[in-house]
Write a protein that binds this DNA or RNA. Structure first.
Lengths: 147, 147
DNA sequence: ATAGATGCAAATGTTTTGCAGGAAA
DNA sequence: TTTCCTGCAAAACATTTGCATCTAT
């Protein structure tokens, strides 16, 4: 099985919390990890279904919530109102192509510093942020010119 | 009537597009303008309802969409999945208190410049962006210490 | 008179919950 | 054998649509 490390992390989390290790949970984590990230609940459901037809939406959503709690996944909400799950990793933001849906991650130290300054100026305590740039990716810009 | 200027802008837009000037449209715009901005469809509905009890959700949503097209309002989607409407104005971003819901707008030239650089580096064409900082506002931080 | 607007009820799409049966420890 | 999970169906929730009726022009 691929992704042994993450399956191990899940097993540890389940054990620590007196939760059970089930076929469905392993299958959902597997599908999630195989995706390039930024996958929706619906997509996970469809892919798990092709191998385990008895799966329900309920289990997918519940398991993804659990993976988030376990620190393996995190939720992203882009402009279309659908929750997407990505592999949890350090601070980064997103560049989204509104034509083809391509998502690129970026990090910018300068922006982080500017944010801290703004937060401080307003006396807030920063918990998290969200920064998304929407536009057309290089491939779509090329297609536009052809149209 | 307050907000004559915007009511005039709406009237012009309606005329230009062969749409009708109705009591409901004027009432919804009025309520929207009286709010401090960042009001939800539900809130608009409730406030209009107190003066015009026959109003329906449908009309509120349809009218807010129309106001967006007319350039008077714009939609904002924060993390709770509820659409909020704000008075359309130049580029700015949001600082949101997750405890009390307070919303502060900010603008930062340095961040805008950094964004442009990132977009250029990835070959994208930028259409719009969204930048939200979530945390605790000064008042809520004070309350926290009391708790 | 007529194009367009309204409000109700029903549909939508996504995610959550209640519950009875099922599987892991 | 007990505790936790699962999948179904139904609920929730915000928003949209179909349609018969009403209203501004």
């Amino acid at each position: 099985m691929a992704h042994e490390l993450e399956q191990k992390a899940l097993a540890d989390y389940l054990e620590d919390h007196n939760l059970k290790h089930t076929r469905q949970r392993a299958a959902i984590l597997e599908v999630f990890l195989e995706a390039t990230g930024h996958i929706t609940g619906e997509e996970i459901y469809q892919r798990v279904k092709s191998k385990t037809p008895s799966i329900g939406y309920t289990t997918v959503y519940r398991t993804m919530k659990l993976l988030c709690e376990a620190g393996l996944a995190s939720e992203q909400h882009f402009d279309d109102g659908v929750t997407r799950y990505e592999i949890e990793h350090e601070h980064h933001d997103h560049l989204v192509c509104v034509r083809c849906g391509k998502i690129v991650e970026f990090e910018c130290q300068m922006i982080e510093a500017a944010q801290d300054e703004i937060v401080k100026r307003h006396g807030f305590r920063l918990l998290r942020h969200r920064h998304e740039l929407y536009g057309h990716c290089p491939a779509c810009r090329r297609k536009e010119k052809e149209d």
